[in-house]
C-alpha cells in the first residue's frame, strides 16, 4: 500500500511517501490510522487529533469506514487551504 503525506502531516511524520504492508487487522481507513499511530512518535504526533486529518483513497475523499486494500494509494492531509 502506497502512503502519501502532505503539509504538516508530512513534516511531522518526516516523509512524503512510503510503501507499507499493513497487518491483516487493517481493513479500513479507521484501522489504518490506528495502526499508523503506533508506528512511532512522529506518526503519533501527526495523527493525535484525527478531526483535522483528511483521507483520500485512490484520489477520492473517503470516510473512516472506507475499506483499504494492498494496492491502494492512500493520502493523509489536513483540510485544504487553496484558492
Amino acid at each position: 500500500m502506497k502512503l502519501l503525506y502532505f503539509a504538516w502531516l508530512r513534516a511531522r511524520i518526516g516523509t512524503a511517501e512510503e510503501t507499507l504492508d499493513p497487518p491483516p487487522e487493517v481493513t479500513d481507513v479507521a484501522s489504518l490510522l490506528r495502526w499508523l499511530q503506533g508506528r512511532g512518535p512522529g506518526y503519533a504526533e501527526a495523527l493525535k487529533d484525527l478531526s483535522v486529518v483528511r483521507v483520500a483513497v485512490n484520489h477520492d475523499y473517503v470516510p473512516p469506514s472506507h475499506p483499504v486494500r494492498s494496492g491502494d494509494e492512500v493520502a493523509l492531509f489536513p483540510p485544504m487551504t487553496g484558492g
Partner: peptide, 29 residues
C-alpha cells in the same frame, strides 16, 4: 472559487519573520 477552496487538495505554508506556519482552514470557507 468557493468550492475549489475546500475541495481541491492545496495547502498553503506561510513564511514570516517569526518563521513558517501552515495555514489553517477557515470556518468561513
Amino acid at each position: 472559487v468557493d468550492w475549489l477552496k475546500t475541495k481541491a487538495p492545496f495547502w498553503k505554508h506561510e513564511e514570516t519573520e517569526a518563521g513558517g506556519r501552515w495555514v489553517e482552514a477557515r470556518v468561513g470557507d
